[in-house]
Design a protein around this nucleic acid. Structure first.
Lengths: 164, 164
DNA sequence: TATTGTTATACTCTATAACTATA
DNA sequence: TATAGTTATAGAGTATAACAATA
């Protein structure tokens, strides 16, 4: 039987659990119901990203923040625009690009949704000491950073000798 | 513009990033390549779960740990069994159930894979103080627990008045 | 009658390829 | 020639429904 390194014991399962909770779990589904929203998950993600940015974003910017490819975003934008939740406006700086903006009704929709999520997170963290909350955000941020950096190192060294 | 509660500022985006890294990112893809594995992601997840359990598991137990439904597990098991990576053995305690066990070659495969993942995580966390590592695992575990509990509370109260 | 697992089917999420328009 | 976005298509991931066997 292999020995698991001390460094990561218990880490992977917990990260997997958290990931499942956010990606497939009922969190989204129930929050959407509570907020009276009937969108697909990635569409809602787009709206939250636009809300967080507090300004219109290009399609490419949204794709980068979602860590997905462009066509995936386009597909959902088509639906969202048809429903009057976002609108595409020309980017004055570049005629090829469009800026995606929340419409007033889109803004109200995402406000309802994030209010529900906020309240649930606030309730879940109610008993956490302030210090733990701060620590967790700090360590989580660093974990993402270090893991991403490590992965890039591996990818670079793995492709260094390839010519394509 | 809505106000975001102080409690969760910065939390959601980081969790989303981590989730994307584990779910869709190149982490799995590159680790599988490095380990010489050509399985689909959920199949590899099944193997890691069996390895972590250190004993054969029922289909239902695997599904629960993956937070997916039974048929999803069955589909991957069919492929894995055909490839001689796992085997289904009768559960002596219940003739309806089967126990899923890693074959010797399956064990070697998952050993190669987890060795790669372990080394990457160890490298990523190399500069972390021991205290931070411990704290992170603790807080991450509590986050998953509290979030799950909160969600269950919401679901229970939401369905309490429904009769189906 | 309830539970374990399987088969069949369908939906959701995401990527790749080919294209148009502008830079 | 390169970049922003779109359309069309395909594949991976997961769920629901219907069923068989056993409890």
């Amino acid at each position: 039987m292999r020995e698991r390194s001390e460094a990561i014991t218990g880490l992977l399962p917990r990260m997997a659990q958290l990931s499942a909770l956010l990606n497939r779990g009922q969190l989204f589904e129930h929050a959407a119901t509570a907020a009276g929203v009937t969108l697909e998950r990635p569409s809602m993600t787009i709206l939250v990203i636009l809300d967080t940015a507090e300004r219109p974003l290009r399609v490419g910017e949204i794709a980068t923040r979602m860590q997905v490819v462009g066509p995936h975003v386009t597909r959902h934008l088509n639906t969202l625009e048809k429903q009057g939740i976002v609108k595409r406006v020309p980017d004055p700086d570049d005629q090829r690009a469009r800026l995606i903006a929340l419409t007033p009704s889109g803004q109200r929709l995402v406000d309802r949704y994030t209010a529900v999520i906020d309240s649930w997170f606030t309730a879940a963290l109610a008993k956490w000491p302030d210090r733990d909350r701060t620590e967790f955000v700090r360590l989580l941020g660093r974990m993402v950073e270090d893991l991403t950096a490590q992965l890039n190192t591996v990818i670079d060294s793995g492709t260094a000798d390839r010519t394509h």
